[in-house]
Structure formats: C-alpha cells, structure tokens
Design a protein around this nucleic acid. Structure first.
Length: 514
RNA sequence: GGUCUCUUGGCCGAGUGGCUAGGCAGCGGUCUGCAAAACCGUGUACGGCGGUUCGAAUCCGCCAGAGACCUCCA
C-alpha cells in the first residue's frame, strides 16, 4: 500500500492530501526559464524538485501530463517603471544577433544542462512566442469581463477593479491596501491607472524587434499572461498542480491567478507548490551580488568560488538532501560532502548484486521500504528518504561483512526497491558507469601495466610497483589495490565536463570511469 | 519602511511536545608492503532571556542576528 500522498499547498498554507481532479491522472504545470542567458545553479532547484514530483507521481501510478514552458518573449526588466526592455531583445542587441538566435542558443544550453542533471523532459514544452493567438484571446476575454483596459496600444489588467470582486493577493498573503501604501507611485506620466496594474499586452516601440500584430496595434504579450494561456490550453481551465520558485509567488503567480480568475470566473490551479531558494553564504544567488554560478561553471569547476568541479549528480544529490521548501546553502564543503555521500550510496547499490543470501534475514527490508515511501508521501521529503537509504547502506554493508544475513527473497526485494528509489524516483545515475571512454586499447594497456606491477609486487620490488602506480596517476589513471584485485579508473576523461581540467594538475576533479 | 520566514553539534541538513535523523569532516579501529579507497565504531547540538507544561529544539512573549518578497530573478 502506497498510502496518501500529502503535499504543501502554498495557497492554503497547509499540507493537503493530494487527490487529482481526474482519477489516475495529474496535470502539472511548472514555470520554465526565460532563455536569455546560461542556466545557473538556481535553475537546478525547481527543475530537480519538480522532476522528483513528476517521477514520484509516476511511481505512484499516475499518468502525468507535465507542461513546462519556455519564456522566449515578454519578460521585461524593471517592468514597474515601464522603461524595462525585454530581456531577450536586450541580449540580442548586446550580442548583435536575432532574438530567436538568443532563444535558441540558451534553450539548447538549458536542455543540455537538464539532461546532464538527469531531469526528465516535460511532456509538453510550449513557448510563449508560439502562443500569441491564445494570449490575445485571453486578453479579449479579460477585457470582455471588464478587468482589462487599453491605453495607447497597450492593455493593462485593472487590479483595483478585480480586487473589488475577487481577492488580489491571496497567494502571496498581501492585500491591496498594503500594496497601495507600499508601492511607490510613479512621478512620471504612467499610462496605467495604478502603478500596481500589470501589462497584458505591450505596445512595441519602433526599435523593438519582437512584435506581433494585434487589434491594439503591433506589440508583444506580457510575461504573466503566457503561463495562464498555455496552462489552460494544455491542461484545461482547472488543473491539479502548478509549481515554480518561491520568488515567483509575487507578482508572477499572483497575476496568473488574477488573469485566470478574471477570464474564467474561477481559479484554475488546485495545488500550488513552491520550491525555496539556493543561497550562497546565506544570500540568494544574484548577478548583482557577484555570487552567480552557471551550471556549466559548476560542472567544470571554472569559477572563482569553486575549489573543484562538481558533477551533475553531485548537484542533484546535494539538492535532494534538503527538503524542497527549505533554503539550501551552497558551499564547497557541503558539495564535497554530497559527493562523498553519493559515492557511498552508489557503492552500496552496486554491492547489492554481489551479496550472498541465506535462509532468513536479520534485517528488516519491509520496514525500510515503508519508511522511505512514508517520507516521500509527506510532502516529498527526500532528505528523510535519503537518510533511510543510508540506514539501508549500513544494512547492505553488514550483510556483505557477514554480520547480518538476508534471504534471497528479501535481497531481490531490496534490490528492486533500491533501483526504483535511487534511479527511478530520485533520478540519480551512476556516473562511474560511463565507461565508454575506456577504449579497449586503453584498457588493454592499463591491464598490461597492472600485470607488470603485480609481478613487481610479487618480487617485493616496491620501487617498480610504485612507479607504475604513480606514473599512471600522473596521466590521470588511478589504481587502487583491493581484496578482489586491482581497480583502476580514469579520473576525468576528455570530452566530459571536467575533462579538460584534470590534466592541468587539478587534483580533485571528479572521478569518471573506473 | 511594509509583509513574511528563519536561527540545530566543525560544515550541510532532518525533526512541531517525551523515543540517539542522516551525510561530510574529526577521532579510534579493520584491511593493506606502503598509499588510497572501502568498511566498522564514535559526537547527546538546537541564538539569548523569560513563560506554559510532569516534560520543549518543538508552544507563547520579549530581545539579538540572518534572510526572502515588495523591482528582474528559480
């Protein structure tokens, strides 16, 4: 029995038992990236969090329609004073390329990074620029209901009027009066009725490249609108779960609720889920703070804050070791701890295949399984689930050492469960399994040297034995003497993240191959 | 300034009233020609002050510190 799956709903601020709208099916929408620069450490959090959710829902037997958008137009900088430039247009101007080249470039990087982190692609990945019509129709509907107004070729959402009938601020816990007193009124000649009104459609200035025709003139859609339009299109007017980073709660998600409610007369989202931030030295990562690290930099170690490269799975494991609603503080020390811990877990998973069984078990496999599932059922508490997996690691090692025993049935059960938990649900993969780089020729040469070293050792010629080991190590091949024989691995093969660095005498690059 | 959140052992991080979370580091040990790895064992922490309670890291109050959102941000 898998039990009830409980998730924390940001809207009600309570944990609730998850019950899908349609039995056995789940509609999931997650805010994707605005593709105007390289994906960074921060992007890994929501994507890993909701990847875990997607994987776990699938494990529970749901058929999940997972929609994650790509924002490729409409996301402005400094929107409040209306001088903001579209992020993508700005980048296009700076790099002297087409906006859609910017989009393609960074979307490719994003996809590559997501694949590296073993994040499953969503079922549908709609782009804002491909849904201009849908967004325009939604604006029509909002205007028709009386909550939108046109001004000089732009269309704005009338927050005050909306709040008279519905509740603007219910998700973020604000009320309009507070917003009024705390929002600086613009000195300039705003075309908005109130400073807290937001754009549904923006008129394109003469130099603006990304523009589409509309009944209000040439322009482009507002940022908040795309999610409302696309989630509705693919998941319907009411759907199960909407996810995103906590920093999107206000204004982005608040505005989504307003737009959808204004348009349909009811809310569209049943459960709102928000992941917390990754911090660096206790502060949110931001370009302006100089603590900004891209995923590529992380994977190669090429950043002043990094002591070494961290593999994608180390990042993934690091994030999964904290609950998604807690902030998690980044540091080299913490990452190194995750790297070691992950290695220990993976070693135990491998050991499962080599355990010998006996008639009865002295370890409680069923209880371990229950605890792991119970942890995930409790608002996706991967930190607890992983703690239990480590308890299991101890059990596995004890069986291996002969101080505990396991029956054949239990071993089969445990093996299946670990594979399911570690690979399918937590989405970890064995990076050391990437042995493609160990070409047969290389392997043959190394094996030959190992056998020469074995002869030297047999003759107690430690000088020669150590020389072989040291010289191999110097070119990036590490030998380890174990009970079963000599183990060797390429520390970081060329062509993979980190591969270029190891040769330049960085000692702690992560270890690939074996 | 407004709204909200957080403060756990050397580091990261679970935990909402009583039962050693877990990982990493450290220390001790096993193994080993040495080394590395691996494995085993080991730590009774909860910002300060007061209160409620038989009992508080966990509830309440005050104080101190940190952070988030309010502006783009995952």
């Amino acid at each position: 029995m898998k039990g009830d799956f409980v998730i924390y709903n940001s809207l009600t601020r309570k944990k609730e038992i998850f019950k899908p709208l349609v039995e056995d099916r789940v509609g999931l929408y997650v805010c994707g990236p605005t593709v105007y620069s390289d994906s960074h450490l921060g992007h890994s959090r929501p994507n890993i969090t909701f990847d875990l959710l997607f994987r776990y829902l699938t494990f529970l037997g749901y058929k999940v329609r997972y929609v994650r958008n790509i924002t490729d137009v409409g996301h402005l900088e400094g929107e409040v004073d209306e001088t903001g430039e579209d992020k993508i247009s700005k980048k296009a101007r700076l790099e002297q390329i087409e906006p859609m080249e910017v989009v393609q470039k960074y979307m490719n990087t994003f996809h590559k990074n997501m694949e590296e982190l073993n994040i499953l692609p969503p079922g549908i990945e709609p782009r804002a620029s491909g849904h201009i019509i849908e967004q325009q129709l939604m604006i029509d509907s909002i205007i028709e209901k009386g909550f939108g107004y046109e001004q000089n070729g732009s269309v704005y959402f009338d927050v005050e009027k909306y709040n008279g009938q519905y509740n603007y601020g219910k998700l973020s816990g604000r009320n309009l009066d507070d917003i009024k007193t705390n929002t600086r009124q613009l000195d300039g000649q705003s075309e908005k009725k109130n400073s807290f009104d937001f754009a549904l459609w923006k008129k394109a200035s003469p130099g603006h490249i990304m523009r589409w025709p509309s009944k209000w003139g040439e322009g482009f859609p507002g940022w908040h609108l795309e999610c409302s339009a696309m989630s509705t299109k693919y998941l319907g007017e009411i759907f199960d779960i909407h996810g995103g980073g906590m920093d999107l709660v206000f204004p982005h998600h608040e505005c989504e609720i307003a737009q959808s409610t204004a348009s349909f007369g009811h809310e569209t989202v049943r459960y709102w889920m928000h992941n917390n931030m990754i911090t660096i030295d206790g502060q949110k990562m931001a370009r302006s703070l100089g603590n900004f690290i891209t995923l590529n930099e992380l994977f190669t170690g090429n950043h002043k804050l990094l002591n070494q490269a961290y593999s994608p799975m180390t990042i993934r494991f690091f994030i999964l070791q904290a609950h998604y609603r807690s902030t998690i503080d980044f540091s080299n020390e913490a990452l190194q701890a995750s790297e070691k811990g992950l290695e220990r877990l993976m070693t135990a998973v491998k050991a499962l295949g080599e355990l010998s069984t006996s008639g009865n078990s002295t370890i409680d496999v069923a209880s371990l399984k229950e605890k792991c599932i119970a942890a995930l059922n409790d608002d996706l508490n991967s930190a607890i689930a992983i703690a239990h997996l480590f308890d299991g690691v101890k059990m596995i090692n004890s069986v291996k050492a002969g101080t505990e025993t396991i029956s054949a049935t239990d071993l089969d059960d445990l093996t299946k469960f670990y594979k399911s938990m570690v690979f399918d649900i937590l989405g970890l993969r064995d990076e050391k399994g990437a042995e493609a780089n160990d070409s047969e020729v290389l392997a043959g040469a190394v094996e030959l040297l190992i056998s020469l070293r074995k002869d030297a050792k047999a003759n107690k010629d430690w000088g020669t034995a150590d020389k072989i080991r040291n010289e191999l190590n110097a070119i990036g091949i590490e030998l380890k003497d174990t009970k079963e024989g000599v183990d060797w691995k390429v520390k970081a093969p060329p062509g993979l993240p980190g591969g270029e660095e190891w040769a330049s005498n960085k000692k702690d690059n992560y270890k690939f191959g074996r």
